[in-house]
């Protein structure tokens, strides 16, 4: 029953045994098979989708109206100019919303009695701006605020559009941050307070960093959604990619510029999503939810 104690540790460099090599070969073969299955099913599904599309009765006319290659190429420079506005709006609204959302979420977790009005205001703000459709917020801010004739308030469409997006998105983000904060294990707070950290220090140094890591995927989701919604400012007359396309379409009723604009949005958002995925995967600690490694 008793195994012999192992002798002195073996100092020779490790050579995988036959057994280990066989396992490696088997795993590689499994991976290859999985890849082939994935490829085959993709080809079948894509082929079917393509067939449904081209065999539809209106396909010829649709192709001329929506997929005119010459128009596509011709419109790209102007659309890219419009997209530049979308990107600026997106970055600014995104950064401001992230900061504001986090502050709102933290404000909501305070407990001091004197801060009750603050908490109440946050609740009302979040409920209102999360509950009202973005389009409506845009229209109200875009046309309502200028009507007040406040001399200090810029009235450019791009500014007002950004402001409206910030209102809506900071409300969304505040709720996500709050969920992240509530998911931090109470023992973490206890441990920090036991070390003598104050409430505020605990929030800033322990709770918020963990909360943020917990919700990175959800935040990313919202930030990508904001990139698309930056196109909504076109309804206020801001000349972004969508507006450029719209102006062109009104001229000749060829819808290719819309498709081209959609293409440009994808060119930005898809690499962005992949980059953040890669960043998250490289980061050692994936938040309390991260389960390291797939278990066979």
């Amino acid at each position: 029953m008793v195994a012999e104690p192992n002798a002195v540790p073996d100092q020779r460099p490790w050579q995988p045994s036959e057994k280990a090599l066989a396992r490696t070969v088997y795993r590689a073969r499994r991976r290859r098979r999985s890849f082939l299955v994935a490829l085959a099913s993709t080809v079948v599904v894509a082929g079917l989708a393509w067939w449904v599309l081209v065999s539809s009765p209106g396909w010829e006319r649709t192709r001329e109206a929506f997929f005119d290659p010459a128009r596509f190429v011709e419109m790209l420079p102007a659309l890219a100019g419009g997209l530049w506005l979308n990107l600026r709006v997106w970055v600014i609204a995104g950064l401001v919303s992230l900061v504001l959302g986090l502050l709102l979420a933290i404000a909501r977790t305070t407990t001091a009695p004197a801060l009750f009005p603050l908490r109440a205001a946050v609740v009302v703000f979040v409920d209102v701006f999360r509950g009202v459709p973005v389009l409506l917020v845009l229209l109200l801010v875009g046309f309502g605020l200028p009507a007040l004739r406040l001399s200090w308030l810029p009235v450019q469409a791009a500014f007002l559009g950004t402001l409206a997006l910030v209102l809506t998105y900071s409300a969304y983000l505040a709720e996500i941050f709050r969920a992240g904060i509530e998911a931090v294990h109470p023992a973490q707070v206890a441990a920090a307070r036991a070390l003598g950290l104050t409430r505020a220090q605990t929030t800033r140094r322990i709770v918020v960093p963990q909360a943020v890591r917990n919700v990175v995927p959800a935040l990313l989701n919202i930030v990508v959604a904001l990139q698309k919604d930056s196109g909504l400012i076109s309804i206020l007359g801001a000349v972004d990619a969508i507006r450029v396309a719209q102006i062109s379409v009104t001229g000749d009723y060829n819808f290719t510029p819309y498709v081209a604009a959609g293409f440009l949005f994808l060119v930005v958002s898809i690499p962005l999503t992949r980059a953040v995925d890669a960043y998250n995967a490289r980061r050692g600690w994936r938040g309390t939810r991260g389960v390291g490694g797939a278990i066979r």
């Binding site: 490790w14 057994k19 396992r23 088997y26 278990i295 066979r296």
Partner: peptide
Amino acid sequence: DLLEDIDDGSIQLRGVDIADPWVDA
């Protein structure tokens, strides 16, 4: 408990090597 893949060697449960990836973990 097959929660971790090993690099080499064998883990036999009643004589069957459960470290082999073709065994139903």
